[in-house]
């Protein structure tokens, strides 16, 4: 495969109520092996996917939130979270899971994967992509 493409996985759904969040995460994990320039966007209810303290101990669904914490190990380190979407839902960055990756270009320093961006910045980021995945 020649050209590296900019792939953005657009997440606009809350987890558990439907399977979309989980199954799109499965695509991200498989896609990580393809060495493309990957980012994830969390817009609207998609921000709920990153909520900390997800706990399935009183449910029979699998808590898949730990998979987000493993994304850094798959070189998926750009998770854009929309500021307005958080605010509309009364959420703050502190209520999301702390997600990090090790930056190989900076002596493997541990850095935050989550980047909070404004709605306008998100629109610009979408414009810059080659492929937009929606689930």
């Amino acid at each position: 495969m020649s050209k590296i493409k900019k792939f953005m996985y657009v997440n606009r759904r809350a987890p558990y109520g439907t399977v979309y969040a989980l199954e799109s995460l499965e695509v991200v994990l498989i896609g990580a092996a393809f060495d493309q320039d990957v980012s994830l966007a969390f817009i609207g209810d998609g921000v709920y996917q990153l909520k900390s303290d997800q706990d399935s101990s009183d449910s029979d669904q699998k808590n898949f939130s730990p998979i987000y914490q493993a994304l850094g190990d798959y070189d998926v380190s750009k998770l854009y979270v929309e500021k307005e979407s958080l605010e509309e839902r009364g959420l703050t960055l502190e209520e999301l899971m702390p997600l990090t990756y090790e930056d190989e270009d900076d002596d493997w320093a541990e850095k935050d994967s989550i980047r909070v961006v404004s709605r306008d910045e998100m629109a610009e980021l979408m414009d810059q992509q080659d492929v937009l995945f929606n689930f």
Binding site: M1, K5, V27, G31, F133, N134
Partner: peptide
């Protein structure tokens, strides 16, 4: 087949069209 087939198709095609 596997999900890799979706990624591969998206890499190689000029456009990915999503219907859902």
């Amino acid at each position: 087949s596997g999900l890799g087939q979706l990624i591969e198709a998206a890499v190689e095609a000029d456009r990915l069209m999503v219907f859902g």
